[in-house]
Write a protein that binds this DNA or RNA. Structure first.
Length: 230
DNA sequence: ATAGGGATTCTC
DNA sequence: AGAATCCCTATT
């Protein structure tokens, strides 16, 4: 919290560079089909301002979910208490509890009455690595694996259901921003891979086999490998 | 009211 | 390979 020493403001004194918050993506960036938004989120920064300070990571893996017609989506049952955020405006968070113990976070896409969403499945930790490791409670865990999974990243960034429905365009608590040049370039250089969504076999052959999972090729923070490409 | 199961992760 | 663990949804 102590900034650079700058006693008198003389030209030779270290210049205090104001820390600029990463600008949140505007509403319009989310108002498109989840199948487009999912790959577009790769390389973007997920920013979390929590009680233990700021933690951020670069998104390296996502999955697209469509509306009620998508048998793999929670929206398949229509609008319920749990899924209300998905049926709301784009650019909000949909956070849910899975297996009675883990949270996962989605970015709501499309628009009202079009319940598209993108599940954030993995991040490359950038800021607040020590806080992430402390929240994870695994001191031996490699940095690249701290947020390598949809529930792991929620734990690392302290995202829970208190953020369900949060407006990601507000630039508070939780938002999406562009990564800085070298980070974005490194992600872009990796190239993009896609494969079947994880853990949705119950949706049947049609919806369960769609290649709606996207990732940065070969990235060490992927939740798990993608099937080999033919 | 109750049963069935899950967009996961960790340990054995 | 199996447990942990609770809330959601559908059914009785």
């Amino acid at each position: 919290m102590t900034g650079p020493t700058h006693g008198d403001g003389s030209p030779s004194a270290p210049r205090a560079v104001p820390a600029v918050d990463p600008a949140p993506w505007p509403r319009g960036a989310f108002e498109r089909p989840s199948l487009e938004l999912a790959p577009a989120l790769l390389g973007a920064l997920l920013v979390r301002d929590g009680p233990q300070g700021r933690t951020t990571g670069i998104i390296v893996e996502t999955e697209a979910y469509a509306g009620p017609e998508d048998r793999a989506s929670h929206a398949r049952a229509g609008r319920t208490r749990r899924t209300a955020a998905m049926f709301g405006p784009a650019g909000h968070a949909y956070v849910y509890l899975v297996y009675g113990m883990h949270c996962c976070v989605n970015v709501v896409a499309e628009g009202p009455d079009r319940a598209g969403a993108v599940l954030i499945r993995a991040l490359e930790p950038v800021i607040g690595v020590a806080a992430m490791r402390a929240r994870r409670g695994r001191t031996e865990e490699p940095t690249a694996r701290l947020a390598a999974g949809p529930a792991r990243l929620c734990q690392a960034l302290a995202v829970d259901r208190g953020l369900d429905g949060h407006d990601l365009t507000a630039g508070t608590l939780l938002w999406i921003a562009d990564a800085t040049g070298d980070m974005a370039a490194r992600i872009a250089a990796g190239g993009l891979v896609h494969g079947p969504r994880v853990g949705v076999a119950y949706a049947g052959d049609d919806w369960g086999s769609r290649l709606w999972r996207f990732g940065v090729r070969g990235h060490p923070s992927l939740s798990r490998p993608f099937p080999v490409e033919s």
